[in-house]
């Protein structure tokens, strides 16, 4: 390979990396600031266990078990979050309250996920209308 073609390929790689960085940054921003609906799904091991409307839910706690390990999900002031988790990392607790459509609460070790139901937020409905 000549030095020149190598330099050219390297420049292409640099541009590709820059594009990747910018596109993912914009995409993240879009997901974070997108308005979400209030329908929430609790999914365990690929199955939807609960579908809740946060606006109508009173404060309560839901316990979900997977292979003997417990997760405690709490609803407070119409917000939902992971209160306790029997797993090594507790990433799901640190995620805090379920805030935006793009960032579900996930507990990988216990295969549990809390997310806003797809298709209930305004942005996605708008997308469907535009396509139809």
């Amino acid at each position: 390979m000549t030095a020149e073609s190598k330099a050219k390929k390297q420049r292409a790689a640099l541009i590709a990396a820059a594009v990747l960085f910018i596109v993912s940054a914009v995409w993240c921003g879009y997901l974070l600031f997108r308005q979400s609906g209030r329908q929430v799904e609790i999914i365990s091991d690929g199955r939807v266990l609960y579908t809740l409307d946060l606006d109508r839910e009173a404060d309560r706690e839901i316990t979900v078990e997977y292979e003997g390990r417990k997760n405690v999900i709490a609803i407070e002031d119409h917000d939902i979050f992971m209160k306790e988790a029997e797993c090594p990392d507790h990433t799901c607790i640190k995620t805090g309250r379920l805030g935006s459509a793009g960032v579900p609460i996930v507990c990988l070790p216990n295969k549990l996920m809390i997310r806003f139901k797809a298709g209930t937020d305004s942005a996605e409905n708008g997308g469907v209308d535009a396509a139809a």
Partner: peptide, 19 residues
């Protein structure tokens, strides 16, 4: 592992963080 495509929602954050 999670048997749902929904975890793909994290992908943009993972790409950004990966960069």
């Amino acid at each position: 592992v999670m048997k749902t495509l929904a975890v793909m929602g994290y992908l943009p954050f993972l790409i950004f963080a990966g960069c």
